[in-house]
């Protein structure tokens, strides 16, 4: 691999953008495609390889063998609510390979003692979220139960195209939330993409079980996003 290509690849990764490296296994020649280039690349199209949803692997085309290596940015989960459920989510998310960030303006909740070794932001989502630069490689869960905190965060997460957006609360709570988001100018299609009630229905009762249900649902949309939505 040429050093300049490796450096370009590392720069894309550091900026949390996806990239694809295509290697001709016969002669070692290589190309690096940035996220937007990968979407329109003729070879990737004919191989039906997409940055999301496909896996890295060897493909044959025109009598040649290519190794197509997909680089996806490290995945993140951003949560509003330094509550019981997110206390359980933090270590579980780490085991699953996610970076997790927890935001809560209530400093009685958001304490390092309750959240050891977790990136914790004591502040309002309007202030905290822009600096985090939510993106399509981020899942977002709103679990404070407080619309003043959750709703502005939900709007930002939907605008950023997070691959999963979920919100805790009963159907009744969610109906009120839907109205509030409409008032805030969020489109109906975006509102409809919110997962509420949050989490897979595994009969979760305890906070760790609810954390498990949320993380299972995030996993489902990460791995089978388009199929899961169908």
């Amino acid at each position: 691999m040429r050093l300049d290509l490796l450096a370009d690849l590392n720069a894309e990764r550091a900026a949390r953008r996806g990239a694809v490296v295509v290697t001709d296994l016969a002669d070692g020649s290589q190309r690096m495609l940035r996220e937007n280039e990968a979407a329109s690349d003729a070879l990737l199209k004919s191989l039906n390889v997409r940055l999301r949803g496909s896996k890295s692997g060897v493909h044959e085309h025109g009598g040649k063998k290519f190794f197509v290596e997909l680089h996806r940015p490290p995945l993140r989960i951003v949560v509003t609510g330094a509550v019981h459920v997110s206390q359980a989510m933090a270590p579980m998310a780490k085991l699953l390979g996610y970076d997790i960030v927890i935001i809560d303006p209530r400093d009685a909740f958001a304490t390092p003692a309750r959240f050891p070794d977790v990136q914790l932001i004591v502040g309002w989502p309007d202030n905290a979220l822009p600096s985090l630069a939510l993106d399509p490689w981020t899942a977002f869960a709103a679990i404070t139960h407080d619309p003043k905190i959750d709703n502005p965060a939900l709007k930002l997460a939907l605008d950023a195209g997070c691959f999963y957006v979920g919100a805790l609360g009963s159907k009744k709570t969610h109906a009120r939330r839907v109205e509030a988001l409409k008032q805030m100018g969020v489109s109906e299609a975006k509102i409809a993409s919110i997962h509420a009630p949050i989490g897979l229905d595994i009969g979760a009762l305890s906070p760790p079980e609810i954390a498990l249900a949320i993380l299972a649902e995030i996993t489902l949309y990460l791995r089978k996003g388009e199929e899961a939505s169908a």
């Binding site: 490796l6 450096a7 590392n10 990764r13 996806r72 780490k94 085991l95 390979g97």
Partner: peptide, 28 residues
């Protein structure tokens, strides 16, 4: 990314850094 500890992006960063230091480097 599922591997706790060293992530693959750190490994590729190390490859770049090592090469810039003038070392001979291979990626498997």
């Amino acid at each position: 990314m599922t591997n706790p500890g060293i992530r693959d992006d750190d490994v590729l960063k190390a490859a770049e850094q090592w090469r810039r230091e003038g070392r001979g480097v291979a990626i498997a």
